[in-house]
Nucleic acid binder design. Sequence first.
DNA 1: CGCAGATGTTAACGACGGTTCACGGCGGGG
DNA 2: CCCCGCCGTGAACCGTCGTTAACATCTGCG
Lengths: 203, 203
Amino acid sequence: MTSTGTDTALHADAARPSRREQILRAAAQLFAERGSRSVGVDDVGAAVGVTGPAIYRHFASKDAMLAEMLLRISERLLAGGTERVAAAGADPLAQLRALIAFQVDFALDNPALITVHDRDLPTLSDADAHEVRRLQRRYVEVWVGVLTALHPTAGVEACRARAHAVFGLVNSTPHLDSRLPRARTAGLLAAMAEAAATSSSQA
Amino acid sequence: MTSTGTDTALHADAARPSRREQILRAAAQLFAERGSRSVGVDDVGAAVGVTGPAIYRHFASKDAMLAEMLLRISERLLAGGTERVAAAGADPLAQLRALIAFQVDFALDNPALITVHDRDLPTLSDADAHEVRRLQRRYVEVWVGVLTALHPTAGVEACRARAHAVFGLVNSTPHLDSRLPRARTAGLLAAMAEAAATSSSQA
DNA sequence: CGCAGATGTTAACGACGGTTCACGGCGGGG
DNA sequence: CCCCGCCGTGAACCGTCGTTAACATCTGCG
């Protein structure tokens, strides 16, 4: 919520909130709708009112744009998740609820980022893809830690699968026609996620 | 399970199981790994041991390949779902379990198809995309019908959201490192999906 | 035997799109 | 005032890739 919350990245220009951020936002929207490979540089430019090549005043390449986008998402998730768990005290169920609330909020606020996050990862360079996966893995492990506490008899692998399944559930937000009020959707997703995460280990 | 189960489609050549199917299978795998736009015709050809242009002896275009792939998936899901519900009798909970078992089996057997199914829909032609969405919608409505019976007080919109969330949960299979035995994963996903689908309506 | 059709191959075409280049306006500090 | 870094433009370059064309090969059948 603080003004420093926005500049997650390794880029020192906190004093350029405007054009660069504008481009990233517009690109995220377009990438989510049609896939990064189907969106031209000209399209992104047009979405912010400039021509295609103008993009290169702000980003080294189209790939660099995507890379920064995905890295930011992964960093925000990891940081937010870690923070929420720490703030939730020692009760595993409270920690789980905090994680779920966080992920639900993020997914409802940024459906486009959710979509791009797991659709366009393969198009990244090997180095960038590796870094994004590293961050994702660490975020997953935060969940696995909490889930392991809740399911002491279950193996780590089962908890990891559970975590991915809950992600899939919550990250279904891009598929929802948002005709019902946000609060209702949030409540529904949170309830379903908690039920899924705490369901008994055997069918 | 029967031999007729494979030819879901409107194509009369049931007598050509080999090369054409081979290409579709290989393409699905490649598309899932790297996205259809990032996969060249030459790549698909190489995957089945021929050169790129040879593809055009079997498909009118690369887009037609993708279209047929997505249409088949949607048709299989709709047909299978409808059939399972009909076979499950009148009990809504039994119907739900049948649907979940079906979706879990499909998602575990065809993770690549699951990935392509919701990632490459935007790259289809408008006409094909429309048809695929129409089939998807009908499949969703099968679920919505069952869920509405289970949650009589909840609105249709809420049930639709619930359906999408369950899809997201079950369709997380592409993200699972399959280190644990398939039966365990299937049981886990089914249990989570049922818990999520039947969770109380309010948080 | 030799035509026909199905299946492949290599070479070439043509379009699309990311990137670069050369240039122009705009604003602030010496 | 004038110079310079920032930001933008239009034109051109060039690699990639879907697609087509022209030319073999093999099989089966009359």
